[in-house]
Design a protein around this nucleic acid. Structure first.
Lengths: 220, 220, 220, 220
DNA sequence: TATGAATGAGCTTTCATTCAT
DNA sequence: TATGAATGAAAGCTCATTCAT
């Protein structure tokens, strides 16, 4: 029983989701499911209404258009959750003094893995659509530059002065770290969630590889 | 002058592309362009026909349906090129005796980077659509298991006996290597092709990180 | 003034026709008119919508496909009306004790003639399409075998014992009777409705010919 | 073994069918088959070409349009065969002196039955399309009035003077005779060709019924 | 005689959206 | 809040027909 089930999403994203009219709630849930499964463009409002068990017209009473429905699903994830909310957790990690680089990376990896597991449907949806709406990609990037980059840069420089990371440009180090983390998260949660993953072992292997890899070259 | 232009694609993928009727050629090119830019579902056959400068009906004379057109674009990449064709080059790499793991990984990385640069439009298309057509993902996986895995496994075991890779399951090692390679290729070619990349430096940093990371733990 | 006008149809066939949404009613009427006039395959949904004064899309909201529209027109005639409904009238005829074969045949002929006059458009449609959709022909035949044949057989045997019908297989007698009846109804209503028919005289001639024809051979 | 197979058609209708170019022959055969099976409007030229094994363009080299192809199939049946040709056989029957009405009717019935068996596909086609092209119906009627009616009328009057047919309008007598003949031919050949017909018995029953039925009323 | 690429109009169907109730 | 009839544009696709070879 290696894989605990991946959790739901909307209830924890919309602060007042429980208070919404039932029709609206069912529409949001159905749309999330269908968008994530078949893509935005290939999902018709008729299919959403049928799957939600409501009349098609109701969708347009609550959301002015189909696109608006998509954005109301994606926006909380991108703007409010991806950053201000989950940021709180990441910033908490970043604010701590970590005795060793491994402590920082492990905290980061576990936090992101948990986050992605919880919101995997929404993430599938966002990842699918982000290719087609470059402005989303750019806003994501801007948010990152202003909100997260400074803290991360501080931390990395700290570990560089401690000789836990060898001399390299900040962007390169960041790319190497993100590759390693994403290289675990994406196949684990989004591509092959049904494999019998030895999750703890993969986490440890990933961390050790990253730490050894970033370390200064061994002096012979 | 950091970024040489990314090359074309179809001419080199379809062995007899030049011999196809001109209408079919233009349809394939236009569809590739539009699918990659706006996604399969959001691209109408009318738009393809207009962009190709042919009558819409001609699309359905050559390809029985819009879906069939997508598959005829993706299949060569996935089945004939991803593996049997580019495999020739990878297998050549694998067949060699590499004095050090770094030689193998460097050859691999450079080969894949060149390949992706050449076929970047098709790859965008395939990556976008693979989420929505799980049969593509599965066929990709099967091809890999039967065609590539054995050779790679042999090579990795060889370097494990040489103590260049520490003790770990094959799947884990593979995942770590692919993460690092993809972590360079994907942002470089598909996400941010217009950045001023220091490509050579990134290649070297990636390789060194990977080699150090996979090496056995240093004995204190 | 030999020919009274032939009556309408749908209102009396669909029990709740009046309660259907107006759009659906108008589509059914227009489709019946056009299918009967030009044939199913040669009638476009665009023409139906235009003639009904509704948007073309509405056809597919109410009937899932053009074929479904045809079947919803033909089915009530074939299954509910041809048999269970008009059957009530035929079974009433069959249930009576008729002093002479002529009384039975005359009642049958007048009933069927009236029925066909009322539903002549639908019948044209069904006769046209029945050649092309053999499942309709078969379902008609099955209904007949189970619902009508037994009663008819009883009646005919009764008149055979009374020496009003000579010795012959049941199927043969039935065929001869139906030929004679249809030989009046079809040209009168469907082929040449505009001729100056002497209807009453034709009815009497048909009946007498049939009765004489079925009688036992005169003994010299 | 009640049902001998129903024979082919085109070879015996087109005097020079064997001399036509092979492409044209195969197109005619395939079109006859498909038109008879699915109807004219529901059969595409693409389907005809495929079934004939020729290029679609060839159809339009030999026949200027799809409609022209239909007419070239139907016209020989209607104009050259229905009348000048099979008429020769009917006129031969009519020209003879028949000792008894039964001899005339039997000759007629057997001749028509054989004719319909041979050309059943073409007849299905003509019957299907005649509803939709009223000019065909009318031309058929005109041909009948001018070419056949006089001879038939002469014969019937002859048998009326001989007291084998009772006093009735010519049109009525004709209708009764045709009903009886068609009431055997249509179900036997066109509707239920696969039933286990006792053909000879049905022919005799039909003839006797008709003769008795047309005879003057028995004097009590 | 025969091919098959190419056309453009028209087909059935789907879609997001509106509106009276 | 919720329904469902109705809309009109556009979708994917089929069709008969033309034309260069």
């Amino acid at each position: 029983m290696p894989n605990p089930p991946l959790g739901p999403s909307l209830e924890s994203l919309y602060p007042n989701f429980e208070n919404l009219p039932p029709g609206q709630r069912r529409i949001l849930s159905a749309a999330l499911e269908l968008f994530a499964e078949k893509g935005y463009a290939a999902t018709s409002t008729g299919a959403i209404a049928k799957s939600a068990g409501v009349a098609e017209g109701l969708i347009f009473k609550h959301f002015r258009s189909k696109k608006e429905l998509l954005l109301q699903l994606a926006r909380p994830l991108l703007l409010e959750v991806f950053f201000p909310l989950s940021l709180r957790r990441i910033q908490a990690i970043m604010a701590q003094k970590h005795p060793h680089l491994k402590n920082l990376l492990e905290a980061l990896l576990r936090e992101r893995l948990a986050f992605v597991k919880q919101h995997h449907r929404l993430l599938r949806l966002v990842i699918q659509e982000i290719w087609l709406h470059p402005e989303l990609l750019q806003s994501l990037q801007e948010q990152f530059e202003t909100q997260l980059r400074p803290d991360i840069e501080t931390q990395l420089k700290h570990f560089q002065t401690q000789a836990q990371i060898r001399e390299m440009p900040f962007g390169t180090a960041l790319r190497l770290i993100l590759s390693a983390l994403m290289g675990l998260i994406i196949p684990r949660v989004l591509l092959f969630p049904d494999w019998p993953w030895q999750e703890e072992a993969e986490i440890q292997a990933t961390l050790q590889t990253l730490i050894q890899g970033l370390a200064p070259e061994a002096q012979p």
